[in-house]
Design a protein around this nucleic acid. Structure first.
Lengths: 152, 152
DNA sequence: ATCACTAGACAGATTATCTGACGAACTGTC
DNA sequence: GACAGTTCGTCAGATAATCTGTCTAGTGAT
């Protein structure tokens, strides 16, 4: 049995992941807005995370992001309208569209990665370089354990 | 400049927090469904996280959860309909309603905390006890740093 | 040629959030 | 007391981000 007081029991790993994650997200998407991309919302990262330099099919993006084609289409439509993506029919498959980042879209991806690195550096300043390195290492280990168990 | 390859640059702290968090959430809410509470969805945790043994006002819950009164009212309504909460007028303030957990609601909170602790134990099994302890410690430090900076 | 499968679109629903406006109730000051 | 300003919760309406189910067109293997 767990006899610790509720306030302590409530400090779950989930909460300890969620709070920093939300803080990070505020920093990164705030920074993105400040850099001239206020239209990019957190959900859009599902696209930027999984699109490669040669673009990808809608279905491939959806599968990698673990969501339905319809949901991914919704996100892609928004980004295409804002000029971050451009889609063209696949010459090898008449059913498929290939979605690619535009130059503007590549700038967003770059800004996203920059801002993330900056935010991580600030974390290291706050909690110490060693501790931040251990944090990253432990998370990487955990993510690897998850990923082999149920590949994305 | 950051000259690491894109695949490595993409392994941001955000991603390293998000993936475990999502995995954890699946485990916990899956477990909750298995324990007979399939109607509890992740968003509802905003209520369980912030309600105390003596209940709370809607407005207080909303503020603690960092959302609008309207959004919190939506979540509370759902939980009240499902019998996890019961709300009564505040005898000291005619405007206010006090929302309290029912016995069923308390069982949910208990299950939530149990499942979280179990999930954390499984993480320790996977990545090692020492590493898991360091992970928790680093996250606690980070959360504390966030919380003093912008108290919730 | 046909037939099973796949890519993406369309229609419609659900969940979880928001903003703005509002009436009722409380609180402090005159 | 009366009045002004604040706070509590609700209503109406909108938006974001997801889902299921159905459909057409295209592919590919027999």
């Amino acid at each position: 049995m767990d006899n610790r007081p509720v306030t302590e029991r409530r400090r779950t790993l989930g909460a300890l992941l969620r709070l920093p994650y939300e803080a990070l997200q505020r920093e990164v998407y705030g920074g993105l807005a400040a850099r001239g991309f206020p239209e990019i919302r957190p959900a859009h990262s599902a696209v930027f995370r999984h699109i490669g330099p040669d673009g990808a099919r809608l279905t491939a993006l959806a599968e990698r992001a673990g969501m339905t084609k319809q949901s991914m289409a919704y996100l892609v439509d928004g980004l295409e309208e804002a000029g971050h993506l451009r889609s063209a029919p696949d010459p090898n498959d008449g059913r498929a569209r290939i979605v690619r980042l535009t130059v503007r879209g590549e700038r967003v991806l770059d800004a996203l990665l920059d801002l993330s690195a900056e935010a991580e550096a600030r974390v290291a300043d706050r909690i110490g370089k060693r501790r931040a390195a251990k944090l990253r290492k432990a998370l990487e280990e955990w993510v690897d354990a998850i990923t082999v168990a149920s590949p994305r």
